[in-house]
Amino acid sequence: MKGLRTPLGRAIGLGPAKEGIGHWWWQRVTSVALIPLSLWFVFSVASLVGAEYQTVLDWMRSPVIAALLIMFVISFFYHLQLGIQVVIEDYIHTEWLKIASSLTLNFVAAFLALVSVILVLRVALGG
């Protein structure tokens, strides 16, 4: 059937999650961000093994460290959400269950990201 919509107009907003290429693009953005951030995070935490509590506090109170930690947790949980979204779309074929799982995933990932950011800020801004 011929329609007035262009092929691009029909393609935008489609895909299993109904969001077009946004998912693909942000998965790449977060993965590129996570290369330096996660390497930095893991090696920092490894070097903090066995450290005094005050040493860890001083470390996290540095504005640069706190900012990097916040960037890390936001990229981490965003990337996590995008990744599991694909797994849900691949394996869950019952429509209502797929939507329910996606919603649960979104809420849990957003919640864990927010809690992480608040915890870093509490340490960084705390007296």
Partner: peptide, 13 residues
Amino acid sequence: SSPVLVYWLWSIA
């Protein structure tokens, strides 16, 4: 296992 990360941050705060 990401809740472990949140737990670690919480323990510091």
